[in-house]
Design a protein around this nucleic acid. Structure first.
Lengths: 347, 347
DNA sequence: ACACGGTACTAAATGCGTTTAGCAGCGTAC
DNA sequence: GTACGCTGCTAAACGCATTTAGTACCGTGT
């Protein structure tokens, strides 16, 4: 069997448009970019020709002279299975896209193995090949070397992470994780809980550290002693192990830094013979699609990842174009469901 | 405060390398692409110069002459929240990346609003701007118009979906979803179940239809009457509603086309006073990170999305380069956990 | 008649890596 | 000495959209 004939219709170039309209290439460029120097009559004729041929300028040719790639990058150094469980990421991408669509840029995504060096190499490659004009920084760590790297590579950058953290000079869109944790603690304290434990994520990440700090602050603000806490590393296993550890300290409530850990914790509690929420209240973070459909449904913190993505993209495009915009910090919202209730009456 | 001076270090071009090595641009190109016409001595000198300057050819310049973009595209017309819950997708991206890294191509990701037209426009834009050489097709629907569109756009394409389905001539990497469902039914039948219901996803998608068909076939193969089934649309709400509907028919087991639906179903069953697995066995599909940490942990089907992604990328790159490879169809695996058991003794 | 301005366009340069044609220099054959 | 081939390199063209410099043509003023 032979290849289907007809095959790829050669994509038209500006020369084809010029020929069809009976003008020079220069005139086409001027006409379609709304620049002066072409009569309205000719401009219209050129527009029609371009329309007929369905012509769009090749970004490669454009990129050559403007030294702009018309693309931005995102490098993810995550274990794919870890990436999977993050509804934030998906929403973020959606938000980014709404902004990119208007600015004629696209998103280049690179998933690399875990490890700082692999991640750095990902950005380096994109930069040296002139594939991107700027990049997003997600999952920022304490002492993250990427801000410096991107500066060195001459790339515009925008970090996404907790409000008020240190991004080494890189502009950032602040996510107010802390507010969500604070709301959760307030909610529990309001129900009468006093021994509220905390399961943090992976201490190396800023968004993990900031959630832990928020829990501490909120406890203090309510005059409660900061109870026990343990790291769950944002995984199911970690969340379960941390919960087993914390249950020995007899808390009446546990605040988790992620839904997955909370879900694992819920199972551990039930195995230990505890009823949720009668004996133990639990709160998660992220509002995974599963959260609302558990038994009992999980009280959790919902972020607005689409808004965060849009804000980050807005800021990044502004940096690239040399414009200035004031970044926003979307706030998360506590979704109260059935996994939280008043603590067992003091016995 | 002024901009930090020093600023962007101008990215070196091939001319810089040539100057440093004391040769012409042509010689550099020949040397670094391992083509004859340069002495080994000079070649080495050029290599060192390129290394020193940390030079990499600009893809834009390359793209101009080869009329290759050195990028492939993926357009997703999904609700961001729906995307979030799909561990398949994340693994897929990871697998794609392993292959792309070797072939000097990158992945351009576009998330568009739902709707066929938005999706088509996404591919059209990427193609006309010469941004991509090929594209992946995910979430293929019955009567999907994208294979025809991509052919018309002159793009190489690879579809990902159930083995043996009709992709309108587009080469595909077959995922053997059906095998997973069959294994689940066999597992349940082996435990003694006879009334096994099924919650399908969204009928418009091939991978949904194929899972439904697999359930029917497996039931027949075991001499069982195809029990009731209902659509859950791959959402939590849908899974819960479908479960309520099916429970009226008193099944002893329900097979779900996704974990999320199974999780929602488990809550519904428990609210109805049923014990899982004593009164009702449940199986999911996907092996979400949560699945292992539920109470009881969910018996489910685990795919190997990384292998699928790698296979799809391999096939796509081969199409682009005009090579031929024989595509593989990775098989899923049933993970037996605590949500399945023998049916309640025939009363 | 010629200078001056403005308009509407064209020709040509530009960016950057690859490729092809061309050329210098050397050795060999006759 | 010329013809021929080979090696090792250079110069130049190419692809494509944008931009700048340049030109033709018209009308106006003197």
């Amino acid at each position: 069997m032979d290849e289907q004939s007809g095959g790829a219709p050669a994509t038209p170039t500006i020369a084809d448009v010029a020929r069809l309209a009976g003008v020079s290439k220069g005139a086409v460029s001027l006409a379609l970019n709304d620049k002066p120097g072409v009569s309205e009559e000719t401009r219209q004729r050129i527009r029609e020709a371009a329309e007929t041929l369905n012509w769009r300028p090749s970004i490669h040719a454009r990129a050559m002279l403007r030294s702009r790639a018309f693309a931005v990058g995102l490098v993810l150094a995550r274990d794919p299975r870890h990436l999977a469980l993050d509804p934030f990421f998906a929403g973020f991408l959606g938000g980014v896209q709404t902004v990119l669509a208007d600015s004629n840029s696209v998103l280049v995504l690179q998933v690399v193995g875990q490890g700082e060096e692999a991640e750095a190499e990902g950005y380096r490659r994109l930069a040296r090949e002139r594939r991107i004009d700027g990049a997003f920084l997600l999952d920022v760590r304490t002492d993250d070397r990427r801000p410096a790297l991107l500066r060195e590579l001459g790339l515009a950058a925008v970090a996404v992470g907790p409000d008020g953290a240190d991004y080494d000079g890189t502009p950032f869109v602040g996510v107010r994780d802390g507010d969500g944790i604070r709301d959760a603690v307030e909610h529990l304290a309001g129900l009468g809980h006093r021994r509220i434990a905390f399961v943090e994520g992976a201490p190396a990440y800023l968004h993990s550290a900031s959630r832990l700090a928020a829990w501490r602050d909120a406890m203090r603000a309510h005059g409660l002693p900061a109870g026990p806490h343990a790291a769950g590393h944002f995984t199911g296993e970690g969340g379960a192990a941390a919960t087993r550890l914390l249950l020995e300290r007899r808390p009446t409530a546990i605040v988790y830094a992620s839904d997955l850990m909370a879900i694992a914790g819920m199972s551990v509690a039930r195995e230990a013979g505890l009823d949720v929420p009668a004996d133990l209240s639990l709160t998660g973070f992220d509002d995974n699609p599963e959260a609302a459909h558990l038994h009992p449904p999980l009280t959790t913190v919902r972020q607005d990842p689409v808004a965060v993505g849009a804000a980050a993209a807005e800021l990044l495009m502004a940096r690239i174009d040399g414009r200035r915009v004031t970044p926003v910090s979307p706030s998360p919202r506590l979704i109260v469901r059935g996994s939280t209730a008043a603590p067992p009456a003091a016995r």
